[in-house]
Design a protein around this nucleic acid. Structure first.
Lengths: 156, 156
DNA sequence: GATTCCATACTCGGATACTCCTTGTCCGAGTTCCAGAGG
DNA sequence: CCTCTGGAACTCGGACAAGGAGTATCCGAGTATGGAATC
């Protein structure tokens, strides 16, 4: 059970875009260089975030990506869902309905295993939905200033 | 982000073994037929549970698998950890330390993203550790009786 | 000087490899039980 | 009646094939910016 690394990329990009929101759109080239990531693949991930309405993309020269909403209105859960898909980690295959153990049995409602897993996953989602990009930005005091300074130096 | 289906198999097998604990060890052949699962691969999963100390395996004729502990002392978390590995779903690759954005920066402690993900995962684990195989058995009243009856019929 | 045109710098979407993990299968070796042969 | 031996049933561990999801790259098409060429 492994979460794609694109989630980490996406979250870092969102935080950075939050800090650079006054600098206008940031191009993929700059974001990839900023974190030393494969440009083409990072693009795909950010496109997914754009489709989910988390980012805005501006085409043309001087274009790039920006946050579509204030950082306080983007939860970590939003980013995870956009990048990993809405499906649950545990998918019940209804094993109990198959094989010799199920002969002549009738099942009603989800099995206890499915319920238990779902409850755990809800706790996980609730925790992720309780934190926003703004919370992450506040969690690193001073990093916003340093980011803007470094970014200005990189552009020059 | 997808959990292996072996987890569902393992949990169902544990519950069934809990119900059949007075019938002695249950062979892989019977368990696979019980749930209509690929016998060889199910064996691998149960061997993992045995290595983790959740099941006991008895070799030789009349051998098979049994629960190593009372069902109340086996949590869902135990089974998930044994089958999915102890690693966390989110693995921080320390992206912030790479690329142009990290030049001249010094980072101390885990980043906020890593902390947020870890907290969510702890909530998930806590929920799973709060439920045992015994709880799952009690969640399906009457199923124990039916299981023993069907199992006796299958052996005959 | 105003307008047109073009090069540039971007994003978008699709198509295509490549890689790794999961899933699934197979085989040889070891262990236990049971039944039958022989004492 | 007791012991020994062999086969059957079972698990263990490793090796290996197949499949799919995640990772990564490339290309053609569209769009905005800015500057040069033209009127």
């Amino acid at each position: 059970m492994q979460m794609g690394e694109g989630v980490e990329w996406g979250l870092h990009c969102c935080v950075t875009l939050g800090w650079l929101k006054d600098e206008g759109p940031v191009s993929i080239r700059r974001l990839a260089a900023w974190f030393d990531l494969p440009q083409e693949y990072l693009k795909k991930r950010l496109q997914a975030l754009t489709r989910a309405g988390i980012l805005t993309s501006a085409p043309g020269a001087g274009g790039g990506f920006s946050l579509a909403r204030p950082p306080g209105q983007i939860t970590i859960m939003d980013v995870v869902t956009a990048l990993e898909g809405p499906g649950e980690a545990f998918r019940c295959a209804e094993i109990r309905q198959r094989g010799a153990g199920a002969e002549g049995e009738t099942f009603r409602g989800p099995c206890g295993i499915s319920r238990a897993m779902r409850r755990a996953e809800l706790a996980w989602r609730r925790e992720l939905a309780g934190q926003s990009i703004a919370d992450l930005m506040e969690g690193s005091p001073g990093a916003g200033e340093r980011t803007r300074r470094n970014y200005a130096r990189m552009r020059g």
